[in-house]
Structure formats: structure tokens, C-alpha cells
Design a protein around this nucleic acid. Structure first.
Lengths: 273, 273
DNA sequence: CTGCGGGCTGTTGCATGCAACTCCGGGCTA
DNA sequence: TAGCCCGGAGTTGCATGCAACAGCCCGCAG
């Protein structure tokens, strides 16, 4: 996936496939055969294979033992872990920023963004909500930049590539479910605390605030699960297997539980591709 | 990178390229042109491209704006961040294990491994050291499994794919530099504390112990940097640019510093490939 | 009825030829 | 002399043909 915008067939295939997967056009466990996809996407097999490899690295696809890819399925536990993991990594970013210090200008920019957010959450119209989403992403992106750690950015990228793990994954629901609008207020408060902690070089406080901030998404998740109709419309929801939902396709391993019993003798090789 | 062992040309190319990069056969910033690599590796361009994409996802290569790949260079700061990041993620694994609880059998296995480690670190012969390395990796791998979080495993995989970030990256030096052998003792102690913390469901303690445990590698890094001769022999050392080492090839951006000044207005798009 | 073997189909793995693009250098012109 | 344009070499992007492999079904034999 080279830098140049979607001029190449590879990025075209990646973008289109991602969209199709998120929209539920493929069911989890479905085999992604190359020839049908060639016909569907209008690209040749060579760039398609590159695109499939890309999506596998993003975690959306899984390789089959005999070769080939299938759409990956996620459990509700995976979603929780992804959110917690984002909190851990964003917490590390906030801690790095606090420990390493940031220019006053950056802090001022964060504050300005957050003040705009504060004004927006009081309104309820849809346009405000879209602007909120944009500003929220900008806030998080800027915070990440302030950590000055390319490797941390990479690691976080690897986590939020899952659709339901991103900073504004379940926030969408809040536009429709006023019950969860208060969370936006709390989010603003978290942001303010983060800024203050970083300014005062309070690394531990910054870290735990960022973690708790990410956990807001967990609350949203709970709310959304009670409103299936809303959940269905969220991107990537089709990938999540809900335990109390028996209408799964047969022939699919419903829950890819990691093998529970580890053998008692310590002889396992560290696996590496 | 499909499951089946190195029967395919892709994995063959990946393994060989990784080895060549780690051994310093390519200098950081060097362009990885396809045709010379085809001649060097004896594989065709198609699997080679897949292999290059794989290594780019691992973080060893970087894409050029105009297409193509170059060997990535890492600063000393990157190495520190990688170690800290491993500590954060292994800390999360330890915390998950403590919070979620693990079977007594797994704890016993960890203890057995660690007791063997204890015996080994007292001896100084090379064979013991190799066994130590193996057991240490096994300990960390098992601990990771005990977190029961596939996504966490993924994230950690993404970090330790950098050669200098793995659990036993700089430990190699300890075989040759007795000055750092004490660190093995401390490592054993950390392991013991981890086991105890997990058993008692002390999540915070487990997390901070694992973090501090990873930071042992930092100490090793400092020691190794003072012994250039040892450093040169460590895998991946050729990728690290040491600031006080001016003999770099000309025409290479020496330090890919992330742009320091962030513009003050919050208009940035969240970048996505 | 059950287990096994063989062929068939669908799929992926790989190689290569062609086209387009980028970068660089030289020569022309203002 | 400086700047621009053009051409060429080298590179990557893409498409397609071929081969090998895996899985499956069917038929046969025990």
C-alpha cells in the first residue's frame, strides 16, 4: 500500500474490500476466493493478492492452512480487548507526552480543539455531531503525535485498524441514542484532564486518564448491544459474533476459543512465520 | 505468509531477506530493487514482492513515495521505545492474566520453568546459556498465552518483530559480558514476582513488574553500546544509527525525525492507507 | 455398510511479458 | 548563464498463462 493515493489497483482493491467487509457483504468465515473477487472488483489477480495480504495484516482476514483467506470473525471479548488495548496504547502515548514534555503551542492547540468540542456536545443537530467526530479524531491524532514515538504510532495503527476499536467507533450511536449523550460530556472532561496532566508532567495520571477515556467506548458498546437495530448499522458490526444470537451459518466455528489447556511442560517454540 | 512451512517461494524469500537485513547485508536507506533481489534470491518477482510487502508490515522496510522499498533505519530512541512498548504490552498481558485468573496448572508450569532458569543462571557455560534463552522465550510465550487475548498477541507480535525488541534481544551479550550477568538474577526475581502477583490476582503489581522486567533490556542496551564489538555481532544492530557514529553513507536522511512543529489549527485528517 | 483409492474440479502459487511511470541528464533556448 | 524541455534508462505496476496442490465426490472392494 504505497503512499500515492488510490491511483494504484492495490489501494483501490484494499479500499473497496474493506468497505465490503465492513458492510457485511461477506459473512465471517467465508472464503475469499481470488477469481470471484477479480470479477467483482475489476482488478487483476496480482494486485488483488497484495490487497488481500494487506487486509490480513490489518487483521480483517485470516489465512487458511491450505492457502487462501477467509473473513475473520470477532467475539465480543475481542471487541472488549481491542478497546482496552487502545486505551493501553493511548495511555502510553499520553504518558510519553507528559514525561517528555510538549511545546506550549501544542497544548494550546489541544485546548482549542477541546473547547470547540465542549460547545458542540451541547447541541444535538447532526451537523454538529459530524464536526464533533472530526474534532475528536483530530484530538486523538494530535495527542498521539505529541508522544513523538513512531513505533507507538505503528502499534496503535495496528489496533485501531479493527473497525470497532477506533476512537469514534461506537460514538456514532450516540447521535441516535440520547441515553448515551452524557458520555460526550465525560469525554470532554477526560480530554481536559489529559491536557492538564500532560502540562504538569503527570505521566501516571495522563496514562490512567487515557485508559479510562477509551473505556467509554466499552460503555457505548453495552448500550449499543441493547439496541440491536443501531448496532446493525455500525461499520464492522457484521464481523462480531454475538453469543445470544443463534442464526449463524452452519459449518463455521462459532467461537475461535484459544486452546484453554496449555500443556504443562515448557517446550513450546516461539512461533514465527 | 501462509501457514505451510517454507515450502513456498514467499516464505523462502522472507526468511532469507530477514536474515540478510539483520546481518547488515544491506545498509539502511538502501533501495531494495526487485531485479537484483531476484538474481540474489533465486525467486521470481511475484513472490518477491509479496515478501517485501511482508517485511514492510513487519517494520523492517519502508516504502518510497515513488514506489519501491528501502531498508528502514532505527534510532537509539526507536530501540528504547520498542523496549518500553514491549514492556507495556507484556504488562498488559500480565495484568489480564491476573485479572482474569489462570488455572493452577499454568502457574505451576511457569514456576517450573522459572526454577530451571534459576539453576541455569548460576552456571556460566554456553550450553546452559542456550537453554536459558529457550526457557526465557518459553516463559514469556506462556505468560502471553495466559492473557487469553488474541488481539494482544497480535499487537505484541507487531512490536517484537523488530529484532532489538524481542525478549532476549540484548541478552546475548550477557554471555560475553559478565558485568551484565547479574541482570539474569534480577530477571529470575521478576519472573517469580510475576507468578506470585498473578496467583494473588494483583493486576497492577503484575503489570508494573512486567514493565520493569522489559526495562532490563534497556540496561543491557546501555552496557552493549559501551562495547561496540559486542553490539556489532547482535542481529539487527546494523539497522541502528548511533548518533556518535559519523560514518554513514551520504545521500541518506540520517534521522527520520517526525516533523516537530505541529500546525496550530486542528484540521488534520486521520490518515488511513 | 464402511473404508479406501482415484480422478476431477476448483483454487492458489509462480513466472514472465508488457506498459506506464519516475528520475536524471543533456541539450537547447531565452 | 540559467532555466526549461525532452529523451532515455531503469524501475515498478499489472495482467495473464501455466503448473501444482488440496479437497471432494464417486465408485469399488472388503
Amino acid at each position: 500500500m504505497p503512499r500515492p493515493a488510490h491511483r494504484t489497483q492495490i489501494t483501490k482493491a484494499v479500499l473497496r474490500l474493506r468497505e465490503l467487509i465492513f458492510n457485511g457483504h461477506f459473512t465471517p468465515g467465508e472464503r475469499m476466493s481470488e477469481l470471484p473477487l477479480v470479477a467483482l472488483l475489476g482488478v487483476s489477480r496480482t494486485p488483488l493478492r497484495l490487497a488481500l495480504a494487506e487486509l490480513e495484516h490489518e487483521g480483517l482476514l485470516r489465512t487458511l492452512p491450505g492457502g487462501g483467506y477467509v473473513v475473520r470473525e470477532f467475539t465480543q471479548g475481542d471487541v472488549r480487548d481491542a478497546i482496552e488495548l487502545r486505551g493501553v496504547l493511548e495511555g502510553t502515548a499520553a504518558r510519553f507526552a507528559a514525561e517528555r514534555g510538549v511545546p506550549a503551542r501544542d497544548l494550546a492547540a489541544l485546548r482549542a480543539t477541546n473547547e470547540t468540542i465542549k460547545k458542540l456536545v451541547r447541541r444535538a443537530d447532526y451537523e454538529s455531531f459530524e464536526r464533533y467526530l472530526h474534532l475528536n479524531e483530530a484530538f486523538h491524532a494530535r495527542l498521539l503525535k505529541m508522544a513523538r514515538s513512531p513505533l507507538l504510532e505503528r502499534a496503535l495503527d495496528g489496533v485501531v485498524s479493527l473497525p470497532f476499536a477506533s476512537a469514534s467507533a461506537f460514538v456514532l450511536a450516540e447521535a441516535e441514542l440520547p441515553a448515551s449523550r452524557d458520555i460526550l460530556i465525560i469525554g470532554y472532561r477526560h480530554h481536559a484532564g489529559l491536557i492538564e496532566a500532560i502540562e504538569r508532567r503527570q505521566g501516571a495520571r495522563a496514562e490512567s486518564l487515557a485508559r479510562e477515556h477509551a473505556r467509554l467506548a466499552l460503555t457505548n458498546l453495552e448500550i449499543v448491544i441493547d439496541h440491536r437495530d443501531v448496532l446493525e448499522r455500525l461499520p464492522g458490526a457484521a464481523l462480531i459474533s454475538l453469543p445470544d444470537r443463534p442464526d449463524r451459518d452452519p459449518g463455521i466455528t462459532p467461537v475461535p476459543e484459544p486452546d484453554a489447556g496449555l500443556e504443562p511442560n515448557p517446550g513450546l517454540e516461539p512461533e514465527r512465520a
